[in-house]
Nucleic acid binder design. Sequence first.
DNA 1: TTTTATTAAGTAAACGTTTTCTATTTTTAC
DNA 2: GTAAAAATAGAAAACGTTTACTTAATAAAA
Lengths: 348, 348
Amino acid sequence: MSDHKRPTIRDVAREAHVSIATVSRAISNSDYPMNDALRERVRSAASEMGYHPSVAAQMLRQDANRDICLIVPNISNPYYLQALRGINAVVSENDYMFVLCNTERQAQREHEYLRQLYQRQCLGAIISSVDTNPDTINQYVEKGMKIVLLDQQLRGAKCPTIRFDSRGSGELATNYLIGLGHRKIAFATMPLSRWTRQEIYHGYQDALINSSITPDDSFLFVADPPNDSYGGDIELTAGANIAADFLAGQCDATAILCINDMVAFGVLQTLLQNGVRVPDDISVMGFDDVPFAGVYSPALTTIRYPSEQTGRFAAMMLLDSISSNKGLDTIEMQLNPQLVVRQSTRKI
Amino acid sequence: MSDHKRPTIRDVAREAHVSIATVSRAISNSDYPMNDALRERVRSAASEMGYHPSVAAQMLRQDANRDICLIVPNISNPYYLQALRGINAVVSENDYMFVLCNTERQAQREHEYLRQLYQRQCLGAIISSVDTNPDTINQYVEKGMKIVLLDQQLRGAKCPTIRFDSRGSGELATNYLIGLGHRKIAFATMPLSRWTRQEIYHGYQDALINSSITPDDSFLFVADPPNDSYGGDIELTAGANIAADFLAGQCDATAILCINDMVAFGVLQTLLQNGVRVPDDISVMGFDDVPFAGVYSPALTTIRYPSEQTGRFAAMMLLDSISSNKGLDTIEMQLNPQLVVRQSTRKI
DNA sequence: TTTTATTAAGTAAACGTTTTCTATTTTTAC
DNA sequence: GTAAAAATAGAAAACGTTTACTTAATAAAA
């Protein structure tokens, strides 16, 4: 690759009049005993020559690289972007490289990425899987890869999961709306294929039932399965479509609870464009508290997930488990969501 | 790393009763002549054993890895996210791995990332540099790294640049506002340290002068240098602060041209919260056409940069130059921006 | 003083590929 | 029918590290 070859450990050894073993020990923070003056001499020679050990050779010898990977279904979703930021920060602080894999919601791509990561001796990955079967993931866990699941339920997966209390947050949001006097609450969602979505929906139903409101199927609005040919943000258009359905069907709900903020923005857009006032005519709520939620007009009432912090946390777990070379317990860590009241909801 | 060791080329060779050289030639698409039946036998043996060549060994032998890296100042900016998507798509299609480096606007981090990439024999990077000095980048270009600059001017850099006609877009936006009858047009911007920002500003001035309007310094609103301790999106808050200044100073501009959409959203938020109607009382415009721009209410009039496409383009250039092993010319490719009229601006 | 640990440095063997040589066979050319 | 050329396969030499093993010198223990 380089015209001007980079110096190798042998060059440094020659320059410092020592063996390559000594250079290796001087450069790496080996606990092998060695003369401090010599170590210093070698180090200064190395830095003078601009020597840096070949990552490839290290990988080969140590059977491990310093990549940490995040695998997500769709990086355009600000929720994942927030998690990415947290992960990236931790990864970077610890001198690992951050690799991003975007599965476009396809399990097959997910498998392919995992295989590639394994092949390049990647030690750890944080994954928001679209596969409902834990077998593939378990297969790599058994081969020694450290994997942390992000925000999902994958029954039988042999790795830890960090997630939010989705059911509780569905309940929290719904109870808040009920507290404002709403009894006819529509539920707008992407297909209920993902566990988190199901959980939020169950929480919504729980809250209704607890308040003696019978859940009504005509209040459930499910977006069409995403059309992957579309390059923009699928959830925004899904929300817009749902709102169009909502208006066309003359649903008499007084509030719409959306499965996440992006869907809520799509819903808001179409409602406002059609002259529906929010929150005067109808209240709208989301989940996530994406950075944009407070900026939108009307500012969006939502449930906050500390997603950046979650990312940090997942990354720290992973690095810790890699450096200690301990296995990861299959714990499920659940973080508590928080209600953020803004202007898109009102008392009736 | 793995408890259950992965098969090596030697295992496959033993299984298929051939030499490792033959296995290597059968697996890779070498143009070395070999018996087709044998190649097939070796391949099926390999795939049956689940053999995949060690990336580390390949790297070591070939002095190159299959990483493509994107280095950006701030991944939270949807503009970079869009570019990332384009790059990632191309990189992934070509069986490269995508590495992301976030410099947090610090030149020093940028240097450190470049060094790390070089050390791990990364062949190519796409970079939106925060360094105003081309020396570091040139140094790596000379070592053989392929680098493409994204959307900036770095005088003296020995690598190609893909960017938009920022000056033209500034002019385009301003002329549009002038065409609507605006003559007092405020300019809201992040610090004018980046070349693209300066260019947009110059375009704005050009347009004013061409319409015989004297640029007025009191119409220039520059955000305070970003406070990096803030975890959220710096540009949103910058916009909000600018709008606060604007209102406090009782500026009588009838339109605000914002340096990008994120700043525009921040501006809009504060204006709307203070009862200022957009576009009735004042017109607001941005640059970028972030996916959100059409969703905001009022939908944002802006200048569209095809940033995802730009990303694709940069990645394709890079991969092409890597595979053909040709140097990259220091061309400057300029893409044309496009006016997107929505609802945040009006005729007066 | 002799024996035994400890410290320090060097030698050489991996790690898993790709690829240049060599060596053998088969095909082509005359 | 022979010589040259092409096809095919194997042996062995890198690539740049880390580390187990050896060796030499020095310090501690007897």
